Structure formats: C-alpha cells, structure tokens
Amino acid sequence: MRPVALLLPLSGERAALGLSMQRAAMLAESDAKLMFALDTAGTATGAAAAAQAALKRGAAMILGPLTSWEASAAATAVAARVPVVAFTNNPAAQASGAYVFGITATQTTTAVLRYARSRGVRSVVVVGDGTAWSNAASEAAVKAQRDLGLDVRAVAVTAGAPLPAIGDAPDAVLVPGSGDAVLSAARALRDSGVQLLGTVQTLDHRPSAIDALDGAWIAAPDPAAFGSFSAEFEARNGGDPGAIAALAYDAAKVARTLRDAGRLSREGLLGTESFAGVTGAVRFRTDGSCSRDLAILVAAPDGYRSVATSRGA
C-alpha cells in the first residue's frame, strides 16, 4: 500500500504550527507506514526537496505544504505525478498544479452573500482595510454580484480615520476581517440598523469584537464540528489546535477515505462526490480549487451560533 506524505514546516519560524498540524493529521491516520511527515523548513527550496523525497519514498499523494510559495514549489517538483493537496488559501498556487485546500476569501464571501441574498438583501457595501484578505473578499464580492443579483460597492477604512461616505444606505455591510479599523466601522454601522455580514476571518472572540458584531451573519466552519475535533486533539496532545491544524486533520481524512475505497489517486480525489470535514464538506475541482460547505453563524453576546448551511461555496 503506497503511503501519503505530509509536507510541513517542522523547523524555522512556523515549526510550532507545523508540529500542531502534524499531530492533528495523526489523529486521522496514526499509522506511520501509511503517512509520514517531511520538513519544508517553511521555504520554497525546502518544499521542493521534501516533495522530491516524498516521490522517492513512493508517496501516492502529498498533503501540504502550508504556504502558497511552498505549494507552488512542491507541485512544480512533483510535475503532476501525484496530487498535491496544499493547505494554502491563496488561489495563485493552482497555477502550479496544486489543489488549494485552505478556506479562501472567495468561498466564505460567496457563502455569506448567497445567504444574505436569500434573506432579501439586495445592496451590499464591503468595508475593507487594505489587507490581502480584505482585498480578495472585495474582489470576490464584486465578481459575485451579477450571479447573485446584488449591487456591491467597496470602501476602505484606516485606523483612526472616520468612516468614508458610503452613499445611499445599503441593505447590508460586509466586514471581511476583524482589524480595529473594520470593527470600529462595524460598530458604527450596526448602530445605524444596517445588517452586518462577515467572513471566516471576521470571527473574533474578544468581548469588544463580539459586541461590535452583534447580530452579524458570518460564513465559517461549523463551531460544533470544530469543537469536537478540538476536544479530541486536546485529549491526545494538550493545548488548542487552531483552525489551520483542522485543515491537516481534514486532509488526512480525505487521504484515508480514498485509501479505504482503493482510490488513492487524482482520479479518486476528483471523482468523489464530497469529503466530510471539520472545516466543511469539500469537493475538488479539476482547476485546483475546492467547493466547500460552510455554516452561517450569527454573532450574539454569548458567542456564535449556527443558523444555516451554505452549500458548495
């Protein structure tokens, strides 16, 4: 039986995260003969060398690496001989042949806008802070407006500056992240009666953030599913695994599901209807992207609760 290789930064500045991801993956596949880890050191050169080592050891599939530059280097080194399921959320890695398994800005933005449209929202203003995620969410919202029947406008805010004029009051305001400038805008807009929307990176458990986001609809993985995974991880390893470690757990489950079905291959990856996971059920596409089911959460004083599911964002 051919094994699966897990490419992670087990040395360097992201070593602690890499170790947490390795431990999470081993919850889904504990047999070292069926899954082994290789260190990328968090660099493109290290990722390419690790990918080549994985091929020499007979790997049928590569899970990882973590970043887009590592993923591109690994996929290029592999040259399509085996699938590379990378943990990055940067769609740029698809160009190298890697599958982008991270939760992308497009997935979570589209999911929350689809839900908002189903609830009667017709106009949305996206309030960004200039970060890469915020910019990607704004771009995704603008691209989705025709398909969803929405009118979308985007404005930018900076810390300490007043909220720019947004014209006629929209039905909803999308805040892609949870930076101080965005949360300040969210607090002001919430008090005006506008419906707030958020993405997975809007989730913030600080009391001040929850207060600012009270009543917001947010697209993210189901907290109940993550809670079960987190409890299992803590019982085995101690500590909080974090959301990125959950991706490693889900990827290892994908590989195990395919092995159990005798389909540990690119054909199996693309031909399977859906893979269940802590970060949402996913289906892989031929272009290297994934469709992902996400929960729609509502922010409340006691936290976030799930009220709906957005299918295949």
Rank of each mutant, 00 (worst) to 15 (best):
V282I: 15
G312S: 13
A75S: 14
A300S: 14
T109H: 05
L27N: 08
A186G: 07
A47T: 13
A181L: 03
R2Y: 06
A71Y: 08
S30T: 12
M61N: 13
R305L: 06
R285S: 12
A60R: 09
A59N: 12
M1R: 14
S184C: 05
T131D: 06
E273M: 07
K253I: 11
I218Q: 03
A225C: 04
A80H: 15
L8S: 07
S208I: 13
T104F: 02
V112S: 09
S178T: 11
G120H: 02
F233T: 07
G128A: 08
R206V: 08
T67W: 02
V78R: 15
R283L: 12
P223Y: 02
T40M: 04
R305A: 02
Q145R: 05
C290S: 09
A140M: 05
R206D: 06
S274K: 11
V278D: 00
S310L: 05
A92L: 14
G280N: 07
L10K: 09
S123K: 11
M35Q: 13
R236P: 00
R57Y: 01
A28E: 10
L189Q: 10
V307A: 00
F229P: 08
A116I: 12
S123R: 13
G280S: 06
T45S: 12
P9D: 09
A248H: 03
V121G: 07
G238S: 10
V175E: 01
S72P: 12
A169T: 15
T40P: 11
L197T: 10
G64E: 13
